[in-house]
């Protein structure tokens, strides 16, 4: 098939992201080298600079970073069909593997040795979560407003957890408030600059 054929490109996009889905653990940043190799070095659809833009946009838009990147690369290469096929490609391996495991999960979890393993894994997961906090912490600018937002969110969230209110939209509301606060602070900041 010719290199510039639409179907060929769509197929390559699907396969590339299926490969990404199958061979990367954790998603997000682990995907970048494979995407670079396939899309930029091998097929020369997107240049290095654009890849950096795509990473930045994927980080700053809602949704899992891996999915954002797949969609963006797919769109750049072949428009909306490209976006859909790349995302589908990314989804398929995860979906099949997890579905396969889930069929055995209910039976497996009754085995005593596995229960012991999962008790150990629980501690591992908690440590992973704490290290995720440390990692994400590096991307946050330390300033007064940021610290206030961080501290108040932490206190509110902990209080709600201990009160066990059963309220299901707390995180969502706090995220929304964070976004609004950020925009309001920007508006105030630019007004101050104008009056100077």
């Amino acid at each position: 098939m010719k290199k510039n054929n639409v179907f060929y490109q769509l197929l390559i996009l699907f396969l590339t992201f299926a490969k990404v889905g199958l061979f990367t653990f954790g998603g997000g940043y682990a995907m970048i080298p494979i995407i670079q190799k396939e899309v930029s070095d091998r097929h020369k659809w997107i240049n290095e600079e654009e890849i950096i833009d795509i990473i930045a946009i994927s980080e700053s838009t809602p949704g899992p970073i891996a999915v954002n990147m797949a969609t963006y690369v797919g769109y750049k290469v072949r428009g909306i069909p490209g976006a859909i096929l790349s995302t589908l490609g990314l989804m398929v391996p995860s979906f099949v593997i997890i579905l396969g495991i889930s069929f055995f999960y209910d039976e497996f979890i009754k085995i005593r040795a596995l229960q012991a393993i999962f008790k150990g894994l629980k501690v591992g997961v908690i440590i992973l979560l704490f290290s995720a906090v440390l990692k994400l912490r590096k991307g946050v600018k330390v300033n007064l407003t940021g610290t206030i937002i961080f501290a108040s969110t932490l206190i509110i969230s902990l209080v709600f957890s201990f009160l066990d209110t059963g309220f299901r939209y707390l995180s969502l509301i706090l995220i929304l408030l964070g976004l609004i606060t950020g925009v309001v602070l920007t508006i105030i900041g630019s007004k101050k600059e104008k009056t100077k």
Partner: peptide, 29 residues
């Protein structure tokens, strides 16, 4: 999109929230 100052502002506002929420979840766990 990413060079827009309001988008940048919104992200600066939401990052500490996300950080605090994950920390709170891990503390409770």
């Amino acid at each position: 999109f990413i060079t827009n100052k309001y988008v940048k502002g919104a992200l600066n506002g939401v990052k500490p929230v996300v950080l605090a929420l994950i920390l709170s979840t891990s503390l409770v766990m």
